[in-house]
Amino acid sequence: MRLSNLADYAVVLMSAAARQCGSMPLHAALLAEQTGIPGPTAQKLVSLLARAGLLVASRGSGGGVRLARPAAAINIAEIIEAVEGPIALTACCDEGRHDCGFEGSCQIQPHLGIVNGAVRAALADISLATLTVAPAKAEVAGGSAPAPQDKKTATPAFAGATS
Rank of each mutant, 00 (worst) to 15 (best):
A52Q: 05
C92F: 10
E81G: 10
D99S: 09
G85D: 04
A91H: 11
I76G: 02
I87W: 15
N75M: 07
A42E: 03
A52P: 08
L67M: 08
R69Q: 11
Q43I: 04
I79S: 08
P70F: 09
R69M: 10
V83A: 01
D99W: 01
A52Y: 09
L49Q: 07
L55E: 10
G96V: 11
F102S: 11
P40C: 09
L89K: 01
A52N: 04
A73S: 13
L49Y: 10
D99K: 04
A88Q: 07
A71T: 08
L49A: 07
R66S: 13
D99H: 00
R51H: 12
R51F: 12
C93P: 02
V65R: 00
A73P: 01
A50N: 08
V83L: 00
C93S: 10
V65N: 03
D94Y: 08
L48T: 09
I80M: 07
E84A: 14
G96T: 09
A91E: 13
G53S: 05
I76C: 04
A68K: 02
I79Q: 07
A52S: 15
R66A: 15
G64A: 12
F102I: 02
G63K: 00
T90H: 00
L55D: 12
E78K: 02
G85H: 02
A50Y: 01
L45D: 12
I76T: 06
R51S: 15
G63Q: 03
L45C: 09
T90A: 07
Q43V: 09
C93K: 05
